[in-house]
């Protein structure tokens, strides 16, 4: 039987729900040498900022056993102007949806990056990285404050016709409230979760494993945390949701879809097995075929909590 894997994130239609997470897929085309990127539902490019950023001091990454990894890359990127001139043209004929992730160190910077990108062709939506520290608020992440989040998203809503997808940080007390702020401000969908703040110590030298002491924890260990956050957000908003956190198999992806994700993002697993996204797409199809589910979209949010 043929299975329809297509899903919708508001006005953004994807041929399948598998996306590559920002920061783990470069500027979108690096992995093209290894496989046909047009098979993906979409790619999400690394965070683009107003000015180029060299990134954080080394060491920047640390593998946490078999559980995942810490990173503190510091949003190293070429800046919005070089991105438009050098990177975006290559994404035009990708054959998959292209989502550009953006961030700023002030609210105005978020707006300005999107203003510069909005007239450009070659991409389909914005994902908003609201996990960045706000330089005007003692480095508190924008995304941990409802008012700041709402202000960013509302300002962006006035500046773009493209779908807006704020990416929620799990490092908050009540993620549902942040989600509601995004919905009220005009977001089209939400993606969650960004990395969990984490840390590791070298007991020989008594130094932190990464130069910035704490960093973002990603990988397999995140899945239960992210699923719980997804479940919480789903109860708070009616927006389409994108699940992220430790996905490295079709079964992982299905857990998110059943919990309420219309799409998923694969992150750290890209480093381990670049073609894992294709295996996930095939696995989703196989799951639906076996159960005679004609449309994958019918599975979204079918979690049965009646028992237990």
């Amino acid at each position: 039987m043929s299975v329809d894997l297509s899903v919708s994130l508001g006005s953004l239609k994807l041929k399948n729900p598998v996306l590559t997470a920002s920061g783990t897929f470069g500027y979108g085309t690096e992995y093209a040498e290894l496989y046909d990127l047009s098979r993906l539902g979409g790619v999400i490019v690394k965070t683009i900022t107003l000015k180029p950023r060299p990134g954080n001091p080394a060491p920047r990454i640390w593998e946490v056993g078999g559980h995942g990894m810490l990173n503190s890359i510091g949003l190293a990127n070429v800046g919005v102007e070089a991105f438009i001139a050098e990177k975006l043209p290559a994404l035009k004929n990708l054959g998959a949806a292209v989502i550009v992730n953006v961030a700023g160190s002030t609210i105005e910077e978020y707006w300005e990056v999107v203003e510069k990108l909005e007239p450009q062709p070659g991409f389909d939506a914005f994902e908003i990285n609201i996990s960045c520290p706000n330089v005007k608020d003692e480095g508190m992440a924008f995304g941990s404050n409802c008012a700041a989040t709402e202000q960013i998203v509302r300002g962006l809503r006035d500046r773009t016709r493209r779908p807006l997808i704020p990416k929620l940080t799990p490092n908050v007390t009540a993620i549902g409230e942040i989600a509601r702020a995004c919905e009220a401000a005009g977001a089209d969908a939400l993606s969650l979760i960004n990395t969990v703040v984490g840390m590791a110590v070298d007991v020989q030298t008594r130094r932190p494993r990464i130069a910035t002491v704490t960093g973002g924890y990603s990988g397999p260990a995140l899945k239960p945390i992210a699923l719980a956050k997804l479940y919480e957000v789903r109860k708070n908003v009616s927006l389409p949701l994108i699940g992220i956190g430790g996905i490295s198999s079709a079964t992982d992806a299905l857990e998110y879809i059943i919990t309420g994700a219309a799409a998923i993002e694969v992150g750290t697993a890209n480093y381990v097995q670049p073609k894992i996204t294709l295996e996930i797409i095939d696995g989703l199809k196989h799951y639906c075929e076996k159960r005679k589910i004609a449309r994958l979209a019918d599975l979204i949010g079918t979690l049965d909590t009646s028992i237990g």
């Binding site: 180029p52 990134g55 060491p59 920047r60 990454i61 593998e63 990173n71 890359i73 890209n270 480093y271």
Partner: peptide
């Protein structure tokens, strides 16, 4: 050598400092 994530320049985890000084966007890494 360095610890690496992706191996293809995507994750930017294996940066080392270089004395570039030419306004390179990677700013010395």
């Amino acid at each position: 050598e360095n610890r690496m994530g992706c191996g293809i320049g995507v994750c930017q985890g294996c940066a080392v400092r270089v004395n570039d000084g030419k306004g390179d966007p990677r700013g010395g890494y």
